[in-house]
Amino acid sequence: MSLDLFAYPPDPQTNLLPYEGIVNDYGVILSQHEADACLKALLNDIAWRHDQALIYGKLITTARQVAWYGEGAFSYTYSGITRRALAWTPLLLQLKQQVERHLQAVSPTVFNSCLLNRYANGNEGMAWHSDDEKELGRRTVIASLSFGAERKFALRHKKTREKREIMLQHGQLIVMRGDTQQYWQHAIMKSSRVTEERISLTFRTYGGQNAVSG
């Protein structure tokens, strides 16, 4: 079963998942002017690079571009490729602190890194996966802040295959916490109707200097 969660009024204390996980929708937390300015700065100032992965011994370069920033010299490895975090930019640090303020009432969290994904249009997406690396902890909190084109974010239970979907808007914040990564996968769905760019900022807390991300 698939349910479009976007019909629900944003309520950070309402769980959008039916069981074995917690996803909260904080709604659009930035004004149109603020979100537009952030998008422009992120497009121009971030050190974007195409993601790479070793699949069956072959180096694959993705269409999607990525960047990783944080407060320490973190390194993380997935699909056979190791990446190292860059130092916070002023804008990323400002957005991190703003997101942390929004989480203060429900589950106070301090993030130490941010993985950014850039999708040129709806032909680029993110396949089903879970951010369940041990360095993140079993009940990790991941805050996702969206900019640009509206895109469908989907969650799928690993065993029952039950799905939940939400359309993420320009300036919208959602937070995954609790057992979500253990029991659910998530994805950014492709759509030929989307012609504009989208950038996602996923704020995370790694427990050590070496991290692994899926």
Results as ranks from 00 to 15, higher is better:
Thr89Ser: 12
Ala85Ile: 01
Gly125Thr: 06
Phe74Pro: 00
Ala63Arg: 14
Thr109Met: 07
Asn117Arg: 12
Thr82Val: 06
Gln98Ala: 11
Glu100Pro: 06
Asn112Gln: 05
His129Leu: 12
Trp68Cys: 04
Lys158Leu: 03
Ile60Ser: 01
Thr89Asn: 08
Lys152Trp: 11
Thr77Ala: 04
Leu103Phe: 06
Arg84Val: 09
Ala73Leu: 08
Ala120Val: 14
Glu124Trp: 03
Glu162Asp: 10
Lys159Met: 09
Gln65Lys: 15
Glu124Ala: 14
Leu86Lys: 09
Leu95Phe: 11
Gly137Leu: 07
Glu150His: 01
Trp68Phe: 11
Ser113Phe: 03
Trp128Thr: 11
Lys96Leu: 05
Leu116Val: 03
Cys114Leu: 06
His102Asp: 10
Leu103Trp: 12
Gly125Gln: 04
Leu93Arg: 05
Glu133Phe: 13
Leu136Cys: 06
Thr109Tyr: 03
Arg156Trp: 11
Tyr69Asp: 08
Lys152Met: 10
Leu116Thr: 04
Arg139Cys: 13
His157Thr: 14
Glu124Thr: 10
Met126Trp: 09
Ala87Gly: 06
Phe153Gly: 10
Ala120Thr: 07
Arg83Thr: 02
Trp68Thr: 01
Asp131Ala: 12
Glu71Tyr: 05
Thr62His: 15
Asn112Leu: 03
Ile142Trp: 07
Ile81Tyr: 00
Ala105Asp: 09
Ala120Glu: 04
Phe153Ile: 02
Gln98Gly: 02
Ala105Arg: 09
Leu92Glu: 09
Ile142Lys: 02
Val106Trp: 05
Leu59Met: 13
Tyr119Gly: 06
Arg161Ile: 12
Thr61Ser: 10
Pro108Val: 06
Gly70Ser: 11
Ala67Ser: 12
Arg156Leu: 05
Lys96Thr: 09
Arg151Val: 04
Met126Thr: 11
Ala85Tyr: 02
Gln94Leu: 11
Arg118Ser: 13
Leu93Glu: 14
Val99Lys: 07
Gln98Val: 11
Ser75Pro: 03
Asn112Asp: 11
Leu155Ile: 08
Ala85Thr: 00
Met126Gln: 14
Leu136Thr: 05
Gln104Gly: 00
Ser146Tyr: 05
Asn123Ile: 09
Ala87Arg: 10
Tyr69Lys: 06
Lys134Asp: 07
Gln97Phe: 03
Trp88Glu: 01
Ser107Tyr: 07
Arg101Lys: 09
Glu150Asp: 12
Gln94Pro: 00
Asp131Gln: 13
Thr140Ala: 14
Glu135His: 08
Ser75Trp: 00
Ala63Thr: 11
Asp132Phe: 13
Gly72Gln: 09
Asn123Arg: 07
Gly148Asp: 05
Leu91Pro: 04
Asn121Met: 03
Gly125Met: 00
Tyr119Glu: 09
Thr82Asn: 01
Ser79Arg: 09
Pro90Tyr: 04
Arg101Cys: 08
Thr61Cys: 08
Tyr119Trp: 06
Phe147Leu: 11
Ser130Arg: 08
Arg101Asp: 13
Cys114Met: 01
Phe111Pro: 05
Gln65Tyr: 10
Glu150Ser: 15
Thr62Phe: 14
Ser113Asp: 04
